[in-house]
Design a protein around this nucleic acid. Structure first.
Lengths: 237, 237
DNA sequence: ATCCCTTCGTAGCGACGTTACGGTCGATCC
DNA sequence: GGATCGACCGTAACGTCGCTACGAAGGGAT
């Protein structure tokens, strides 16, 4: 087998278990059965090796993505792309951190390719007349949000234990970029009685739409408390 | 001068010029005129030193933020907080990377404090009935987008040469999480249904203004149910 | 003055990324 | 066929890193 492949395989394996800083070139060389100078002649640098590892991993991930042909709905493709991005980040956390953390001086080609891919989808959205902003700007907005969601989940798992927040962020960003501009400032903060009004509102909405996550008895007790809270301000008729 | 302060000053100065990996404890000790064991007895670790540096820098930044009292418009406060976050990141890039990149094993207290601060503002939004999702979820969404925008600008300056994309992302996220103050009539809020928003609103208002007509135990159970109802409309991909 | 306890600097350890140097081996030329 | 040369590769080393064991210096109590 090629020495380059052996080194890349060994480095990939080690990088799956530890962060890039904890993967030493010595360990890579030993795992690959190769002397140190070989590694440096092939990749020049530890950074070069890591970049090559990330690029190869991302290339292999792109194969599955290229198989999925663009559908007729570019916005759906956009959301699929977001979800794929999140899944790649969660499946290969150390590879992903190398792509989007500044640990590497030169960003790996994988990052640029991901950017270009997103840009392509947004170009199709723009061609369909669905974008409210130029596709370059939309690319930056979506990519920054997507990277932020992924990095947040990777670096603070205890604060982001659930992927669903990412779906919410995804819809927030994409909906506001693809729907006609609706930037009405919510200035009219009509603040009346705080708790009673909110309680009355919730009670009414629960009556119109009975909750499925609560038992009938719980819902009944909840309604009773809401009544108490709604009356707590001034007695309403 | 205290040795601790001398070390922190030296480390801060060096960290302003180079990334954390390129700041050696030897250089810090020499710049501070202190032996190496002093540093390790005071901070335990290089990571401990860096965390202390970041915390002190962030504390000093918080002073200006604490001076600005919360205004009557919590959504405006929210946007101001976003912009302050961006400015801090651009003003102290290496400090910021330490806060939100995984280079530190233990996240500095500054990160948790920033999270708590954002959560507080969003609690006020929720209490005003302006939030369409529970404040915890909104905190995650806004924080992830904000961090993503800042880290994108820091690590890929050539791709994000303009801060204005951050303002666009900010408005996208915040506008979609906030709705004009609701007073009582259930105007449809698209996805998620009307119940979750109303439940989140009431929960926040109860947190700001504990009910006197319910016992502590009842209030706790009520909060639990409200949390369930607020999450009942979660988007499921 | 002596003793002890705290405090701090020198010197060193192991591991890291990286590279100079010498040896091995197959191809080429007489 | 044997000698020569050049490409290739492993050993061993260099400088630097984070970190720490140990001995010297200083100050209070007796």
């Amino acid at each position: 087998m090629d020495a380059r492949e052996k080194i890349l395989d060994a480095a990939t394996e080690l990088l799956a278990r530890a962060s890039a800083a904890d993967v030493s070139t010595r360990a890579v060389c030993e795992a690959a059965g190769v002397g140190a100078p070989m590694l440096y002649r092939l990749f020049g640098d530890k950074a070069g090796l890591l970049a090559a590892v990330v690029d190869r991993g991302f290339e292999q991930y792109l194969a599955s993505k290229r198989a999925a042909r663009p559908s007729a709905d570019p916005v759906a493709d956009l959301k699929r792309g977001w979800d794929n991005h999140m899944r790649f980040a969660l499946d290969h956390p150390n590879h992903y951190r190398l792509m989007y953390s500044p640990e590497l001086a030169t960003p790996p080609a994988a990052a640029k390719e991901a950017h270009a891919l997103l840009h392509g989808v947004l170009e199709r959205c723009a061609a369909a007349g669905l974008l409210t902003v130029p596709p370059e700007a939309a690319t930056r907005v979506v990519m920054a949000a997507n990277v932020g969601a992924a990095l947040s989940m990777l670096t603070r798992p205890e604060q982001y234990p659930d992927i669903r927040f990412a779906a919410r962020l995804r819809d927030s960003v994409i909906d506001s970029l693809t729907s006609p501009a609706d930037t009405g400032e919510p200035h009219d903060t009509g603040r009346g009685g705080a708790v009673p009004a909110a309680a009355a509102t919730l009670a009414a909405r629960l009556r119109a739409e009975p909750p499925q996550r609560l038992t009938v008895v719980e819902a009944a007790l909840l309604q009773q408390w809401l009544g108490t809270l709604a009356d707590s301000g001034e007695p309403t008729a």
